[in-house]
Design a protein around this nucleic acid. Structure first.
Lengths: 164, 164
DNA sequence: TTGGAAAGTCAACAAGGCTGACGTAAATTC
DNA sequence: GAATTTACGTCAGCCTTGTTGACTTTCCAA
């Protein structure tokens, strides 16, 4: 079943196969973001707000710097998004006790409700895809995605995957 | 090794597993676009130009309508991108012979050179990821991605995958 | 006590989405 | 042959989300 090196074993590395993978990523990512985008469309929020909400939920009490590193945007860009979320009462910003320069971020009750709505939708699609493909396909899926990340991003990803 | 249905077999569908998949998609997509983005950064082009170039190369002679359906943007948005590519001599637009309302799109020599540069970079990353993960992982990767697409997008994807 | 890091803010700008309106040429339908 | 529809292009204006650059405030640490 599994091809080994030499000759036919490298057929999965042809330009044609690689192109299919590239196009699969393109179309799948559209599906991946479609449901949350639809939910956010009515509100004053966008994909950037979703990302901030996701990672604040994922690591409650995380700092702004930390979030900047994960999201890979400028602080000005993140600040604009965070500002509206704080003003609207979805995110709470708390001055650090050990280092008072830092701001620790948390979702409020209201923020948790939206997070739940967004992630329910996104998980539903992911669950359907996982179920359709089966567990060993899922394992392969994750392996290829991890290998595709930049090393820096892989660190961030693994830090999230393990610790809180 | 591979879990079967019933009881433990559904462990891959836990919220925790799904969350990991969601985050993997997020970080991997960043890697996926990083190399072309870097190349385009110096020029006056962006990711939107890359997408147009990719699909024109993929289906030479395709019409504007067709491209609109694949890219899922408005004609105004596509037109802005296409306009600059045509003006800069990367894309050639040819009035249809059977239906003169249509415009058929082709890459010029210059366009082919940029396409080659962009896709070489993107394929190199994909190739490294595929090689690292192995052929059966690649199969799973593709299966999950296909299952994640919207049905409309899956049609587009499959049309490209098979026919020219 | 002073230098520098962390955070926040203001201003300006660009890419790339969007809607709406309008124009033109060509094909199709009545 | 006239009316309608289709494919495309374009103008104008708006929004989100990214960018740089300059500046301030706070406050830890050397």
């Amino acid at each position: 079943m599994v091809e080994t090196a030499g000759g036919e074993g490298l057929l999965f590395l042809t330009d044609e196969q690689l192109r299919k993978g590239i196009e699969a990523m393109f179309f799948a990512y559209r599906g991946f973001t479609a449901d949350p985008d639809r939910i956010l469309d009515g509100m004053d929020y966008g994909r950037a707000h979703h990302r901030a909400i996701h990672f604040v939920h994922r690591s409650p009490g995380t700092t702004v710097s930390n979030l900047l590193a994960i999201l890979g945007v400028t602080k000005q860009s993140l600040n604009r998004v965070l500002r509206t979320l704080i003003d609207d009462g979805l995110v709470r910003s708390e001055k650090g006790r050990v280092d008072a320069r830092e701001r620790h971020l948390f979702l409020t009750e209201k923020g948790l409700i939206l997070e739940r709505e967004l992630s329910d939708a996104q998980r539903a699609r992911m669950r359907a895809a996982y179920r359709a493909a089966g567990p060993s396909a899922v394992q392969g899926f994750r392996q290829v995605l991890e290998a595709m990340m930049d090393p820096e991003m892989r660190k961030q990803y693994n830090r999230l995957k393990e610790g809180g």
